[in-house]
Amino acid sequence: MFTRSLVAALLIAAPAMAAESPHFGQPITDADIAAWAIDIAPDGRGLPAGRGTAVQGEAIYVEKCAVCHGFDGVGTPADALAGGQGTLGTAKAIKTVGSFWPYAPIIFDYTRRAMPLNNPQTLTNDEVYALTAYILKLNGLVGAKEVMNAKSLPRVKMPNRDGFTPIYPGNLK
């Protein structure tokens, strides 16, 4: 009797237990996540304190970036970072940060997390602001001494801001 009701109880309990999560995750605070939480939203949310200008950025660029992206961001061997504006609708479309990227804060996001390719995540926030300012200046979008920071960078309107058509979850021909 006892055994049978125990078996019955287990049979009833089993599916409910399977549906429950084991809860093996450990709580973590925002402060402890900070070193990894380096993503920047397109509207600039997440941009850190710090500042930089194109003049400052040029010196860092020549030292740490030009070997792969060319002087003045002309490209070769890696991607061109400047030029190409007005070409996207032509047969010779040239995609660069200046001609193609829709949001300026993403330049900060990507440069900080992935560049320079041989030493990513080693630039200071001031250096990243300065490099972002320099890339924007190469594309004629900010002045040489204009300060880029968490407030001013999101205000830079990229030429191709309206060039993307989100289609999820729809379908393309």
Partner: peptide
């Protein structure tokens, strides 16, 4: 969506008119 480099500069489809189809995620 966060419009990261890998969903704007890369992995979007530049169409003939110069507009890019973004978040074309499913593979047909």
């Amino acid at each position: 969506p966060m419009h990261t480099r890998y969903e704007t500069s890369r992995y979007s489809l530049l169409l003939a008119d110069g507009k890019a189809a973004q978040f074309k995620l499913q593979l047909d």
